[in-house]
């Protein structure tokens, strides 16, 4: 499985905080548009923070600029797919 054709980008309303168990994601918004998730993966939280702070929200770029093994990358992309479904990340077509 390859994720190369897409960019995973954090939506701008997502806030991230490290916690002892990993971290939390908070998507702010009026009324029912808010969301909160608890993530117990330090690796995923650090990746999301790196994407937000160093790559203008581009989490794919954060993955590709790091030295993850191919297996780790696939796990992380699978986790990002889950976060897409939960509304924290959107997918942009890769620029050619």
């Amino acid at each position: 499985m390859s994720h190369a054709p897409t960019h995973y980008r954090l939506i701008s309303e997502v806030k991230i905080r490290r916690e002892s168990f990993g971290g939390i994601l908070y998507k702010y918004g009026c009324a029912d548009r808010g969301a909160l998730s608890f993530i117990n993966s330090h690796q995923l939280i650090e990746l999301l923070i790196a994407g937000q702070q160093q790559h203008d929200g581009d989490v794919s770029a954060a993955i590709e600029s790091s030295r993850y093994s191919e297996a780790s990358k696939q796990k992380l992309y699978a986790a990002l797919d889950d976060l897409v479904n939960r509304g924290y990340i959107h997918i942009l077509p890769q620029a050619l």
Binding site: R17, R18, E19, S20, F21, G22, G23, A35, L36, S37, F38, I39, N40, S41, H42, Q43, L44, E46, K75, A79, D82, R86
Partner: peptide, 18 residues
């Protein structure tokens, strides 16, 4: 959501933990 356990914690050196 309830707590989600996506993998075992990976406490890398230097990582800031809340």
């Amino acid at each position: 959501e309830f707590v989600r356990f996506m993998e075992r914690p990976n406490r890398t050196a230097g990582a800031k933990v809340g």
